[in-house]
Design a protein around this nucleic acid. Structure first.
Lengths: 129, 129
DNA sequence: ATAAAGGTTCCGGCAGCAGGAAGGTCAAGC
DNA sequence: GCTTGACCTTCCTGCTGCCGGAACCTTTAT
């Protein structure tokens, strides 16, 4: 398979796949013409990556997860721990965004949004020092 | 005021303040020794920036918001529009993170997390192609 | 023969800073 | 007067996870 094929099948941009090769996440063979030659195993890894990235795992997490996936002797506890830490970070991020949203939506609600200069949003921003 | 003073008062790292000067958000004077000399007006701008960044506005949004703040002829509608767009982006981001969280928490819940290799999390990740 | 649609490498850039090197400056204490 | 330590300065690199584009080669179809 050429890069275009795996790109379509793994739903990843070709650019991203080249980058993943660069950082050693996947190691396709090479045809005599210099084209990357992907095996099923490579496609499988890329699909794994695609899914893991969709779930928000960092590239480094992905690297670890793939190593665990390949290791028949792994303990599911190791996988779970990574997912739990990641989950916590997601929760933190959500909380942070919700705090922004709450403040912002209140400010937006209280702003007339007309031609006049008076604006509670700017007032809030400038309220600091 | 030196950079350390405003850093403390605006709760911003000195590094960040230098960066803001670099990109033209604030223009402190200079003492004869080369030190930045911040006026109250500069401090005020930095506090404004600090608050706006806390609410997640991009630097470019901040630039626009500060211009509107300075413009006595502004229409509050212009400010509100920026805030609304930003709010929408925050909502999108939250929705995306919640989707991740839902999937992930279910996977974490279903994983035994013991010494055995069997792991629903990895199974999900590899389920693609 | 040529053109379109693939592929290749390499370089630069994005946001929003942080870290660190190498050095100048200032106030206090001995 | 000298040192110490806390400031300050500029400059350069690096982070995450790619994307866009240039300049060029290969394959396939007409």
């Amino acid at each position: 398979m050429n890069i275009g094929d795996v790109a379509r099948r793994a739903s990843l941009p070709a650019k991203t796949i080249r980058y993943y090769e660069d950082i050693g996440l996947v190691k396709p063979l090479r045809d005599t013409n210099g084209y990357r030659a992907f095996r099923d195993q490579d496609l499988h890894k890329l699909a794994f990556l695609s899914r893991a990235r969709t779930l928000g795992f960092t590239i480094e997490d992905c690297r670890t997860l793939m190593a665990l996936y390949a290791d028949q002797e792994r303990a599911s506890a190791d996988v779970k721990r990574i997912a739990e830490v990641h989950l916590t970070q997601i929760d933190d991020k959500i909380a942070q965004l919700e705090a922004m949203r709450d403040t912002l939506s209140e400010l937006v609600r209280s702003c007339a949004g007309d031609h006049r200069p008076d604006c509670p949003i700017l007032k809030d921003l400038a309220a600091g020092v």
